[in-house]
Design a protein around this nucleic acid. Sequence first.
DNA 1: GCCGTTTTCGGCCCGACTGTTTTCAGTCG
Length: 573
Amino acid sequence: MKNSDVARHFEEIGDLLEIQGANSFRVRAYRNGSRTIEDLAEPIASIAAEGEKALVELPGIGKDIAAKIVVLLETGTTPQLEQLREEVPPGVVQMLRIQGLGPKKVKALFKELEVTSLEELKAAAESGAVAELKGFGKKTAQTILDGIEHVEQAGNRYFISEALVPAELILEDLLKLDSVTQASIAGSARRRKETCGDLDLLATSSNSAEAMELLANHELVEKVLAQGDTKQRVRLRSGIEMDLRVVPDESYGAAMQYFTGSKEHNIVIRQRAQKRGLRLNEYGIFKDEELVAGKTEEEVYKAVDLPWIPPELRENRGEIEQAEEGQLPKLLELKDIKGDLHMHTTATDGTASIREMAEAARERGLKYIAITDHSKRVTMANGLDADRLRKHWAEIRKIREEFSDIEILCGIECDILEDAELDLPDDVLSEGDWVIAVLHYGLKQPGEQIMKRLLNAVKNPYVCAIGHPSGRIVGRRPGADIHYPDLFKAAADHGVFMEINAHPSRLDLDDIQAAAAKDHGIPIVINTDAHSTTGFDVMKYGVYQARRAGLEKKDVANTRTFKQFKKMLRTSS
DNA sequence: GCCGTTTTCGGCCCGACTGTTTTCAGTCG
């Protein structure tokens, strides 16, 4: 059972308990436990194998949840969840996803109207039954109908790229207003989380009405959902919702800190404030009623005896302890990247030639690239067999003579076949400069076979890197069942790199596994997997992911000069 | 349900906005 399955199990217990009206702190305890498991780099089953005591040492896991983890791993479920599922049908949990419906209202709908699915809820709202319930009204019924439509048509979360692009455009327009003195993106988009549920914008302004009017009439905005004096919520045409908050100048830093989150990070920061006899909210840090800090984020952190913490790290995954000890990493930056080792050309499924890709890479300041078209197994991309690959490499060797200021490596993205063999023979691979081995097919194979394939690739003397290791698509397709500690140990032993694929739909390794790979001392490469000349522009998303993993420049191989990079290759001689 | 250098019991972050209410509960972030 994967960590994500175990985490989801306890998340569901939390949801169901909440609908039943359980103590909210008990509900939160299950969610905290769930999150701890979700964030683990190691399989929870390995920890459980050491005994219940090892589980209890995890934050947010006590005796009770530890015992349930053991039962869950042994039997595939827990009596508690089975019992809860009997009491609360699955459609009722679905109702929690509707904006404006929380546990109390959902419970009332379920108990009073016996509504157990979104369809039944829709019918009840349309018939007027919902509006007649105590605590409900016509507007609530309409909100529910809008909410159902939204849940049905849009997925709930957006790729970081889908979130940041409109947010940056709107931010730019806000800053053009004379009345707006400062403005920034906050929330999960500022933390560069791989997906965002919504967007947060923050501004200081002498005229908050003007800022809100601009947003209400913005071409990217579809509808104003709520509006007060300091807070406005809108839905963009893309479906994503955005909050704008206008705060006083002296509170800007506190509001940035507050609305950047994460919730888990902020809870700990506020607890630190409490311990120091201070009160922290979005307006500042207060001693009794006196404002003692709030204009900048640095001030806020200083008031709780911490240095400023980069937003990407604010997840309460150890960054507060690091900050306390002065051990925060100096995070990688986009400008540190000097090479890109994964891209395609018209030889397979790319849209640009070798020369065009090299020129585009040079324009972006890259000093070295590897052309890595597909191997033959990927028939739909016109993958290369040995003959075509050798000709392709000959072509690359010819073209690279034309470029004095950028190195072009003869590479290949070689499939690791379902039977664990590589898609091209060793004698062919040995002629290249850079071999990335990847899983494309058979991602649903049992973990044992997946590991056999990956380990076989790692042991091959010509494989330089494992590309997009899990094969996941963010929010859409789960990755292969990988036992990461074994993979990383083998990669470290054989000097094989791990890729962070920078495409916003992949971001694979994810942040947690990238941090674990760093701990194993494995060199990491961040690659765009560009299929066109504009494909290079996704590099920043890979860098964001690396920053969330706490990676520094030294942890990432393609920050090196070409000379240094080449020395790291096992095939270099 | 979890947690502990004020605590093994009694806490557990905090304010804005909405809609349904006649003073506030529910929801959200």
